[in-house]
Amino acid sequence: MTEVSATTQDRAAPHMTVSQTNVAIEVVGMHKWYADFHVLRDINLKVMEGERIVIAGPSGSGKSTLIRCINRLEEHQEGQIIVNGTELTADIKRIDEVRREVGMVFQHFNLFPHLTILQNLTLAPIWVRGIPKAEAEATAMHYLERVKIPEQANKFPGQLSGGQQQRVAIARSLCMQPKIMLFDEPTSALDPEMVKEVLEVMISLAEEGMTMICVTHEMGFARQVANRVIFMDQGQIIEQNEPEAFFSNPQHERTKLFLSQILH
């Protein structure tokens, strides 16, 4: 686990405000199957604007599948998923609407290798949002500065380290000015020394009030920024609580077992 510097920790808490009234994501009685395999069972989840959720759980418990349902990279078979007031159905228009407002960061970055960093960042703003190129580039440079690698703008993804690539991936999502960010184990493909630089970017996003759902095993990060930690096992949400209570006083046997394994 990576310790995050004390200064960011001190800065963190005060600005983080969670809306009491505006719902960002609502999942109601959702089920998903892969053929006969019941991956997600009766998922109910409500995320308010500005809320930061960490999802933990053993491998294969359905964490990735759940967040991929939220931007319809996977389709669900039963129940409802409502994102920013738009219910996800097979309707392509709605799916596009949701995807424009929801950013996603993947374990393996998935940068476009044939485009420069700057082109990676401006592609969607130009083609999806219809923003003029010059403006899109200015925005891109702004976010590259935020993730502290403006000097890499004209390189190609293959020339960057893993940590740098993941920061570019975050910046690429931010260029679309999303209301919600989804992270699927963003640091688990990184060498230990690069984990910190990525977590710092994520923490500063949290400070600005971004609604976030992170699948991660970085429990230090969960403690520091999450409003709620959700524990999943075998396709179900087993337990959810505030980080302090979650770590110090887990209710379920399976949660205890899981925590004892990852916290040694």
Binding site: N71, L73, D96, R99, R100, V102, G103, M104, F106, H108, N110, L111, F112, L123, A124, W127, V128, A169, R172, S173, M176, L182
Partner: peptide, 16 residues
């Protein structure tokens, strides 16, 4: 597959 998924999650339509 990750390339398609990244493009999808940025909101790019199928043709693009």
């Amino acid at each position: 597959r990750g390339q398609t998924e990244a493009a999808m999650s940025l909101g790019l339509k199928e043709g693009d």
